[in-house]
Design a protein around this nucleic acid. Structure first.
Lengths: 338, 338
DNA sequence: CCTCCTCCTTGCAACGTTGGAAGACAAGGT
DNA sequence: ACCTTGTCTTCCAACGTTGCAAGGAGGAGG
C-alpha cells in the first residue's frame, strides 16, 4: 500500500484534460454537459477510482449528513434495538449515524447535550437518562436535537416520548385481571431523577387504586439500575421480605429476566405462583423461559418519527419544539399464562 | 431558533479585535500567545460559544477522526456487545465510530467494503459475513481497513480473527468429557460460504475423532441462519429425527437459547437429558434458564486490538497485512451441569 | 459576413481551518 | 543611534469541493 494520496477532482480533471468544474458537473449530474464529455469523464472517474471527498463537499455545502446518536449503551437489548432502528431510519434519509455511548453517566450525557466540543454533525438524537432537565433546557448548542424517551421533559427540543404512565397502568391492570392482588413493582429507585420510573410507578398506583387494591410500600422493590442482575437480586430481596407476592411488574424486560431467574432458583413457578410482566418487548422476551409477557414499544416507528422531526429541522423548519408519543401494546406470553 | 450561522473563528476574531490565526492559536494551545491575549480570546470564545467546525479542520488536516463500522446488525447481542466495545475503544483513541448495518446482505457488505461512495472516514472496521472473499481481496478503496472475524481470510487487510476450530474442539470435548456420545452440531449450513461455520464444524469433528466417536451426519443439524428462532426450529427437527441426542453444541449462543427453549417445550431436561453448549458468552447466557455453558470471546480486547491495528495504519504504517487472534475460554454453567 | 442565441465549459471565489513564514514590536547590547 | 534577539501577531496559501458568472464555440437568422 504505497502512501498514495486519494484521487481528487483535480487528478481526474488533469487526466481527462478538462477543468475541475466540468468533472464536478459530471459527478453531480448537472445539466449542460455534452453526452460524450460525460462519458469521457466518467471513464476517467472509474479508472482512477475517484470518489468525492466528503469533507470538502460538506464544508462547501455546510452540511455533513452526519447525525450523532448519544445512547446509554448499545449493549442493552432495548437501546441496541433502538440504535439499530435509528441506523436504518437514518440510512433511509441518506444520513449516517455516528454513535456515542454515555453509559448513563451524567457527565458524558452533558457532553453529548452540549455537542462534543467540535461541530461536525448536522443533528443529534439523544436518549437522556440521568441528566438534570435543567441542563437540557439550557442547551447553548444550536444543533437541532431530538430527544427520545420520557426523560426529556422541559427541554426546548423536539421529542418522541413514551406514555409510561399508561404502560404502567396497562401492565398492572393485566396482572390484576388475572386475580393477583399482591403485585410488586420491581425497579424502584430515586424517582426524582427518573421520569420514566416516576411514570411507570404512577401507572402502577393508578391501576391498583382503580381496582381498589391498597398500595403496599413494601411491594415497591428498589434496584440500583435496571439490568438483569439487579432484577435478580431485587427479586430475591423482595421475596425474602414478602414471600406472599403473587405478581411482579418489572419496570423493564431486563429486570423481568432477572426476576424469572431468581424465581426459578427460589423454586417459585411462573406464572402459577408468581406472574411477571416486563416492558419493552426485546427479542429475548420471546425466547426466555418462560416466555415473557411485556408491553411492546414500537421502536421502528419511534426511530422513524425521531428522524422525521430532525430532518425537518435540518431543512430549516423553525417552529416551537414538538412532542410525539410512540405507540405501545401488551403482548401476553407464558409468564402471565398466555 | 433564529437561523443564525454558527460562530466561526472569524466571528471571534472580529469580536476580540485580533486576527483569525491568533484565535486559532488559542484554540489549539499553540505557544507564543501572551497570557492576557489568551485570556481575552478565551473569554470571547466562551461568550460566543465558539466551537471549531470539524469539517474545516478536517479538510485542512486531511483526517476526519471518523471510523466506519460495518456490522451485520447491532441488534444481535454478540454484534451489539462488539459494537459497544468498538465505540469505547474508538473513544479511547479520540476517534468516533459511525455505524452502518449490512444485515449480512452481500450487496450491502460489498458497498461497505468499497467505501460507501464518498470518502469521509479515515478507516473501516468491517465484520464480513456473507461477502465472497474475492471481493475483499480486490478492494480498490485504499482506506485502511480492519476485518473482524473468521470470514476475512485472503483479504489484503489487517484482521483480528477467532480460532473457531479450537473453539469447536473445546466445546465438543467438554460435552464428551461429561460422558455424552450423541453430540449434535446445531447450526450447519452452506459451509463453503461460511468459514466460521466450517471451522466450528471442523473443531467438532476433530474432538469427536480424538475421542473415538464416529461423526454421525444426522447429528449435523442445519439452520437457515444463527438466530434464536432457527435454534428452536432446528432443535425440534433434530429431536424428531434423532430422539436419542444427549448433547448439543450450538454454533452460537442465540442458537443455544433457541435450543433451550425447544428442549423445554419438548419436555427434555437440561442438562440431565441433553447438555447444551453455545459460543460467544453474551450477557444473556448468564441469565437464561438454565444458564448456558458457552465459549467466551473477549470482545473488549478484540475491539482494542482491532483499533490498535487500524490506528497504526492511520499513522501511515506500511507493512503487509497482519492477523491477530482473539482469546477464548470455556465458561461452564448449568446447561452442562456447572 | 455579422449578430444573436444557445449550449457547453471554465475561472473565480468561498466554505473554516491551520502550517509556515513574514511582520511588528520591545528590550537589551554595542 | 543601530543592530540583535526574542516574543508575539498577522498574512498567505492550501485542503477539495461547488455556486455563480463569465467565456467560448458553433449554428441559425438577418
Amino acid at each position: 500500500m504505497p502512501a498514495t494520496r486519494a484521487t481528487t477532482l483535480k487528478d481526474v480533471a488533469a487526466a481527462a484534460g478538462v477543468s475541475i468544474k466540468t468533472v464536478s458537473n459530471v459527478v453531480n449530474d448537472h445539466p449542460h454537459v455534452r453526452p460524450e464529455m460525460r462519458e469521457r469523464v466518467r471513464a476517467f472517474i472509474e479508472q482512477l477510482d475517484y470518489r468525492p471527498n466528503g469533507m470538502g463537499r460538506q464544508l462547501r455545502q455546510g452540511r455533513s449528513g452526519l447525525i450523532a446518536l448519544a445512547v446509554p449503551h448499545v449493549t442493552s437489548p432495548y437501546y441496541g434495538e433502538l440504535t439499530s432502528a435509528l441506523v436504518d431510519a437514518a440510512r433511509e434519509r441518506g444520513l449516517t449515524l455516528l454513535v456515542e455511548q454515555t453509559d448513563a453517566d451524567p457527565v458524558r450525557e452533558r457532553q453529548a447535550a452540549e455537542g462534543f466540543g467540535v461541530r461536525m454533525v448536522d443533528g443529534l438524537v439523544f436518549v437522556p437518562l440521568n441528566i438534570p432537565t435543567g441542563v437540557l433546557a439550557e442547551r447553548r448548542d444550536r444543533t437541532p436535537a431530538v430527544l427520545i424517551g420520557e426523560n426529556g421533559e422541559g427541554a426546548d427540543a423536539d421529542r418522541v416520548t413514551i406514555d409510561s404512565t399508561a404502560i404502567g397502568d396497562l401492565a398492572t391492570t393485566h396482572l390484576l385481571q388475572l386475580g393477583r392482588r399482591r403485585v410488586a413493582f420491581l425497579g424502584d429507585k430515586d424517582a426524582e431523577r427518573s421520569p420514566v420510573l416516576a411514570q411507570r410507578v404512577a401507572g402502577y398506583r393508578r391501576a391498583l387504586q382503580r381496582a381498589g387494591v391498597d398500595v403496599d410500600p413494601q411491594l415497591l422493590q428498589p434496584t440500583p439500575e435496571w439490568e438483569r442482575g439487579h432484577g435478580h437480586d431485587g427479586t430475591a430481596e423482595l421475596l425474602a421480605a414478602r414471600p406472599d407476592v403473587d405478581a411482579i411488574f418489572a419496570a423493564n424486560d431486563l429486570l423481568a429476566f432477572g426476576a424469572l431467574h431468581a424465581l426459578r432458583r427460589l423454586g417459585r413457578r411462573v406464572p402459577e405462583d408468581v406472574a411477571v410482566v416486563g416492558v419493552d418487548d426485546v427479542e429475548e422476551s420471546r425466547f426466555c423461559a418462560p416466555t415473557l409477557t411485556t408491553v411492546a414499544i414500537d421502536r421502528t416507528s419511534l426511530a422513524r418519527q425521531a428522524l422525521a422531526l430532525l430532518a425537518e429541522r435540518l431543512d430549516g423548519l423553525d417552529v416551537p419544539a414538538r412532542t410525539l408519543t410512540a405507540e405501545h401494546h401488551l403482548v401476553v406470553r407464558e409468564s402471565t399464562g398466555g
